[in-house]
Amino acid sequence: MNRFSYVRPDAVAAAVRERASDPGARFIAGGTNLLDLMKYDVEAPSRLIDITRLPLRDIQEIDGGLRIGALVPNSDLAYDPRIEERYPLLASAILAGASPQLRNMATTGGNLLQRTRCVYFYDTATPCNKRTPGSGCSAIGGINRQHAILGASEHCIATNPSDMGVALAALRANVRVAGPDGERTIPFSEFHRLPGDEPQRDNNLAADELILSVDLPAEHFAANYTYLKLRERLSYAFALVSVAAALRLEDGKIAEARLALGGVAHKPWRDEEAEELLRGQPAERASFEQAALRILSGARGFGENDFKIELARRAIVRALEQAAAGTPQSQSDKRVQ
């Protein structure tokens, strides 16, 4: 880990000022990913701005929805009665990720900023455009079973590793941020980026902006939802493919559908056309197959990860079946419902 200075501001404005004054500075809260990367010399901030004492730990009611402070730990969020009752999709996705210890530490805002698990990104001895722009993408033609099948570029095929983010994409959350010029709100679908020719940029947060909260809209799909995660061991592993599915059913027909994928792209992947395709359709397998084909129509494999296209298709169909039947996937009973 490199040398850095440490400050612990007690107000948002002061934190943002610290960040603006030092381009090499980073905010730290849970630290579960940043310290991990610093120990691998992937990140080397000149200064850590400890934001854990900022007043961003509350979950508040807003316009029928909830405002989740950026510092709310993942476990507190997953077990909050309001989340459990109204947004069980989010609770389930959080509990599918990491470990209880890490969920106790990791925060809501930090989860949005976690970086890819690509083995080349993590190994400073190998080329990686995300870590060292212009050095090349080693995952193309390399070990890429975990890598992207949607939205990748010739510069980067890394995936976003978050589970929580997949549920937030499906729920159409908003991210409220503060910068030197005040606050703004970024729709979740626009928060993360595709790699394009700037894979070093994971998201559209400006360098001197701080996440204040994640805002959940009123519609919460508590009756028909699921978070289905497929991985290479039954817990404590990153997704090969995960699916957040949520439906509002009326008379056996789909009135509203939400569908997002994890483990397949540089961002939690949501396809509005696929959601639109489901609207008005009967809640049955044929409809789900159509949606899966639509969302995967642009999918492309890179060798080892070719299988993910078919795996994702099947996972989407199953997740929609689980959601429609009101039998969400349990994160402790490993049998897939």
């Binding site: 630290g31 106790n104 530490m105």
Partner: peptide, 27 residues
């Protein structure tokens, strides 16, 4: 592992279990 991958460093901080390897003492 020193990276939050194994849990061998688990301790309780204010009664919550956390990975001590990914916790800065100063914080």
């Amino acid at each position: 592992c020193d990276h939050g991958q194994c849990g061998a460093c688990t301790v309780l901080v204010d009664d919550r279990r956390v990975n001590a390897c990914l916790t800065l003492a100063v914080m």
